[in-house]
Nucleic acid binder design. Structure first.
Length: 586
DNA sequence: GCCGTTTTCGGCCCGACTGTTTTCAGTCG
């Protein structure tokens, strides 16, 4: 049983216990366990068979550890089965109706016999819901509306859609209103989560009234859900909800900290504040005894006041970051400005849009010291992949372009298919002519985990393969990742000096954050690549840097923070020596 | 159910909003 499924079971348990009226702290413990499990980089099944003690994992104690063991061993859990048998099927769906919580669910079940969303809709329409004590017509109407809304809109928005939307809104509002002193996305977008629920924008201004008026009148706003003195909520044409909050600049630090979350991070921060005799809320920090409020115009001073290192938004997941910040152990994370080149770029020789010379000039204008042109190998027929003959011409053309390019190093590269049997799509003699080889899976993505693992490890062991591209092949919200033993792959990569790509394309973000963090622990070095198919895509590197940061990477963990001469020298080494050099760097 | 800078027992974040109520429970983020 995989972690995703185990996490779902604990989420179900939390929901059922909530409806049952169990203590909220018990419910929270199960919810926390579910969240932790869903973000584990290693399968619990593997950890157990390796003899690891699951109670080492924060939030998992004896009771939950035992339940996981039972689930992995027998595929069942008596506690879960018994709990489920106390309720009709469909009850858990009721928890997903906004505005309807466990207390109300329990009442409509016991008093009206409602056990599903359809029955709830019926009861809300025919007046039975409104007739219950402490419920009324308004509540019934609200529930009816949210059931209908949830039917059209229950998906989170991929960051690939949310980020451009947010950037458009920010730019449009800045252009319209000169009273804005600061304006930024907060919430899951600022933390750079892969998917976003609703968009949060926070603003510093002395004139909230005019800013809010301009905000609700922006183009693309389909409906104004609320509009008060300091906050407003709107629905955009595409269904994305945007919450906007404006405060005077002296409170901006507290506001953006609060709205950046995550919720769990804020809980840990407040628990920490409590231990210091302080109380933290979105307006500032108050002394528990005197009640006196201290305000913060920036986040750095807020964290400092709590005796903590600054925690970058990408790390605010409510895991170990608050403890580490107290110990001063948050590393200096890699920044997009540290990147000196891009090593995965396509041109119109395969499935890119722009000619080689356009991509090279564009890369130079990004400030890059080097760029690898990595058009597809022949196996990828749909992508107009290069035959070995065309590859030789490609190499020659790259040398010509480099001569005219004004100082940027142009690496002869290729994105080579890893075939289903683990062999490479070019013979070794062709690979040996290249400076940079990205090996990627583009076919047979549904292989059994052990077959897929062996296939990728074969590519890693090839002496000419420098990097593995978009390891999991997932497309966010559209295609599931491959199944494989990632620890084995990470160990092989670290061992052989094969770097793993963090593909910065917003549709991919592959490796993903938790894999980066785990691979880093196992000694892997990464390369952050745009996978650009047009010149505009070169700017994507910033997204890859954000994923690397979410994976706790420092500049030393990333190959393309090296200056050109060091990178080229490293690539001239045979792989075993390169592996040693990479280890020495970290 | 978890966990330890005050705790192996007794805590566990904080405030806003809504709708139903005359003082607050439920839900949400």
């Amino acid at each position: 049983m995989n972690n995703q499924r185990i996490a779902e079971v604990f989420d179900d348990i939390a929901g059922l216990l909530e409806i049952k009226g169990e203590k909220v702290f018990t419910v929270r413990a199960y919810q926390r366990a579910a969240r932790t499990i869903s973000r584990l980089p290693t399968e619990l099944e593997t950890m157990l068979s390796d003899g690891e003690d699951l109670r080492q994992i924060p939030g998992i104690g004896k009771a939950i550890s035992d339940k996981i063991g039972e689930l992995v061993d027998t595929n069942r859990m008596r506690f879960y089965d018994n709990l489920k048998s106390e309720f009709p099927d469909g009850m858990l769906d009721l928890l997903s109706v906004p505005g309807l919580g466990p207390k109300t669910i329990s009442r409509v079940w016991k008093e009206l016999g409602v056990t599903s969303v359809v029955e709830l809709e019926q009861a809300a329409s025919d007046g039975r819901l409104a007739s219950l004590p402490r419920l009324g017509q308004k509540t019934a109407d609200n529930i009816l509306r949210s059931i209908q809304f949830a039917r059209t809109q229950d998906q989170r928005t991929p960051i690939a859609d949310a980020l451009p939307a947010a950037e458009r809104l920010v730019a449009a509002l800045l252009e319209r209103n000169t009273a804005i002193l600061a304006l930024a996305p907060a919430g899951s977008l600022r933390r750079f989560e892969e998917t976003i629920g609703d968009l949060d924008l926070v603003c510093a201004t002395h004139d909230a009234e005019s800013v809010l008026a301009d905000f609700v009148a922006l183009p693309g706003v389909a409906e104004v859900l609320g509009h008060g003195g300091t906050k407003a909520s709107v629905l955009l044409d595409d269904g994305l909800q945007v919450d906007f909050r404006a405060v005077p600049p002296r409170q901006y630090g507290s506001l953006i900290q609060y709205f950046t979350g995550s919720k769990q991070h804020n809980i840990l921060l407040r628990e920490h504040a409590n231990r210091l005799g302080l109380s933290l809320n979105e307006y500032g920090i108050s002394d528990a005894k005197t009640g006196e409020l201290e305000e913060f115009d920036d986040e750095e001073s807020l964290y400092r006041r709590l005796g903590l290192q600054y925690v970058p938004p990408e790390l605010r997941m409510g895991e170990s970051e608050v403890v580490l910040a107290r110990e001063g152990a948050i590393p200096a994370l890699v920044q997009v400005g540290d990147l000196r080149g891009d090593l995965h770029v396509h041109t119109d020789w395969s499935d890119g849009r722009d000619p080689i010379e356009v991509m090279v000039v564009a890369a130079r204008e990004c400030g890059h010291e080097y760029v690898a042109i990595t058009d597809h190998s022949a196996g990828l027929g749909v992508a107009n992949g290069l035959s070995p003959g065309r590859l030789a011409s490609h190499n020659a053309r790259l040398k010509e372009v480099e001569r005219d390019a004004g100082g940027i190093a142009v690496l002869r590269g290729s994105e080579v298919d890893i075939r289903a049997d683990g062999s490479m799509d070019y013979p070794d003699c062709a690979l040996a002519e290249l400076d940079w080889v990205v090996a990627s899976v583009h076919s047979a993505m549904n292989q059994q985990p052990d077959v897929m693992t062996e296939r990728i490890v074969s590519a890693i062991r090839n002496p000419h393969v420098t990097a593995i591209g978009h390891l999991t092949t997932r497309l966010i919200g559209r295609r599931q990742p491959i199944e494989a033993d990632f620890d084995t792959i990470f160990r092989a990569a670290a061992d052989t000096g094969t770097v793993l790509e963090i593909n910065a394309s917003l549709e991919r973000l592959d490796l993903k954050d938790v894999h980066v963090r785990r691979a880093r622990e196992l000694g892997v070095t990464f390369v952050i690549d745009s996978d650009a198919h047009t010149a505009e895509h070169l700017d994507n590197l910033r997204f890859g840097a954000a994923v690397a940061r979410r994976g706790w990477c420092r500049a030393e963990d990333v190959l393309n923070t090296l200056p050109a001469y060091e990178l080229l020298a490293l690539l001239r080494l045979p792989k075993p020596e390169r592996a040693g050099a990479l280890r020495a760097r970290r």
